[in-house]
Every structure is written in C-alpha cells, then in structure tokens.
Design a protein around this nucleic acid. Structure first.
Length: 271
DNA sequence: CAGCGCCCCTGCCCGC
DNA sequence: TGCGGGCAGGGGCGCT
C-alpha cells in the first residue's frame, strides 16, 4: 500500500494529534510483525512525550527525546487516529493511547510492517544508516543520478527503486516517472544520457510532490492519518495498465517484470 | 561490491 | 459456489 507519498500523508495526518502528546497506554495485540515488536518499547514510551514525528524514506520516526520509535507500514499497513473509542478490528495490531484520549491505531493485514525502538541516534540505526538521499531533497539531482548510474548495467527501474541510491521510489512511481521521462524501464542505467538523467530526476520529484499534494495514491483501501482517501489513482499513466492503451499515443502498453515486480511501459513513448 | 531471487503474510481476483 | 494458484504497493537478507 504505502509508497512515500502515503507515508508522508500519514505523517502529516497524525502529527497534529500526536506531537507534544504523552503516551499513556500501549496495547500490542500481535507482536509478530516483520520483526517482533520489542518488549522494551512499551515501558520506554509510556509516560513520555512525542517530541516530533519525522520521516526518512518510508520510515516514520517518532522522537521522544529519550529514544525513537521507528515505524514502517510495510506493504499493507496504515496508522489511523481515532478520536473516539472503537473496538479493534481484524489486523488492528497496535494501539497507542495518548493523554488527549486519542488512540493511534496500527492495522497491517500482511504484517510486513515493523515497530522498533532505538535509544541511539536514529539515523545511525542499521535500517537507516545506508539510505540514499530523499528524492525531494536538493542532494538528489541530475549530477547525482548521472554519477551513480555510470558503468552500471542494472536496469534503470530497479536502480531507482534501490534505497541505497534514492529512498522512497516504489513500484508505482518508478513506472510512472519512467513513462513521464520517456525512458524504457529496462534501459541499462549506465546508458542513460545526461539529458535523460535530468528528465528522470525531474519526473521523480514532480510525481512524488504531486502525489503528496493530492494525499497519496489510493489503491484498494489506503486512507491517510485523517481517514480521508487519496485521489491519485485515476491519474496513473501506466501502473496496472498493461495491455491498455497509452494515454499519450494510444498504443498498446507493454507489461514485463523487472526485479520481480510488475513493469509497464509504452514502446512508442519510452526509448 | 553488484545484482538478483527469495521470502515474510493475508487478501483478492481469476479460472476451472 | 468452492477451491487452488497467482499476484499485490516493501525491502531485508543471503546467495552467486
């Protein structure tokens, strides 16, 4: 479910309800997520105030001053803010009750998500230490992509989805950004021209910024922290449209697999 | 190191 | 209608 825009939408949605609040209760109904929810998390956060809610890639970082909760939504996770009591449903694995009475509820059917706790500087955590730049940061520019693609035989699509190169480009937006920049997904990264690096970086930034502005992509049942669905799905150009007609040239969209993920492109519009 | 497959898990959709 | 197979938006890990 969540790509970077969904995670950022969640961060923005929960921040007004969570920032500055003190955690009064933690309920873990199912601790078997990607990694077990650490036993020390609940005693570490109860009675403490959430100072800030940050994000690095698709990791949400809830800073307490004494440590940081690292929350990842995985493929199917969501965080909701409940302003009135509601009985937990299926896959509602974790609740944090705040001193306002609001409940932060984590639901994750596939349990690929994670909730961890660290007391070291969070960016030094093993999961975060080797991540590439944020796609919307100025560090991610055409010069950077050019340098990182030289002498690389890897397909450009799997390269831009590699978090060591740049974080936050998931399968939907990788497909879309390559379409919007006119580059075939299987092109060897090292063969991209300078101009193509310029276009691709611009396309990645544009689509992520636009998706964030629109509240994230809705596929199936994504809802932001405020419970409102995103409205981006109907605007996708290629993702999940294999065999359909290109919205630009009306040609047949091709579907292949790269890195074991669905890949869709237009042979006419992408070279 | 680069690059690829596998796997964690449930839900849903499709074909039979 | 029921059931088995395949696939799904992430990403760490282990292998070559």
């Amino acid at each position: 479910m969540p790509e970077l825009p969904e995670v950022e939408t969640t961060r923005r949605g929960i921040t007004p309800h969570v920032q500055g609040r003190t955690v009064t209760e933690v309920v873990v109904r199912e601790s078997r997520l990607r990694w077990p929810v650490p036993e020390q998390l609940a005693p570490a956060v109860i009675g403490r105030q959430v100072v800030t809610i940050g994000r690095r890639g698709k990791y949400l970082l809830l800073e307490f001053g004494t440590g940081t909760a690292i929350w990842h939504l995985g493929m199917s996770g969501s965080l909701r803010v409940l302003t009135e009591a509601a009985p937990p449903g299926k896959h509602d694995h974790i609740d944090w009750t705040l001193d306002s009475g609001v409940v932060l509820r984590f639901n994750d059917p596939r349990r690929f998500g994670a909730l961890l706790w660290t007391e070291a500087p969070v960016l030094e955590h093993a999961l975060l230490a080797h991540l590439g730049p944020e796609p919307l940061d100025e560090l991610f520019d055409a010069d950077y992509l050019w340098a990182r693609t030289r002498r690389r035989a890897q397909a450009i699509k799997t390269l831009i989805m590699d978090a060591r190169i740049v974080v936050g480009v998931g399968n939907i937006y990788a497909n879309e950004a390559l379409f919007n920049s006119g580059i075939r997904p299987a092109r060897p990264a090292g063969k991209l021209t300078r101009a193509e690096c310029v276009r691709l970086v611009a396309a990645i930034k544009a689509i992520l910024a636009y998706a964030i502005e629109r509240g994230g992509t809705t596929l199936r049942d994504f809802v932001g922290g405020d419970g409102k669905p995103g409205y981006f799905q109907q605007e996708l150009q290629v993702y999940d449209r294999g065999g359909a007609n290109c919205r630009s040239c009306a040609g047949l969209l091709m579907e292949t697999r790269l890195g074991n993920r669905q890949t869709v492109y237009c042979r006419q519009c992408q070279r």
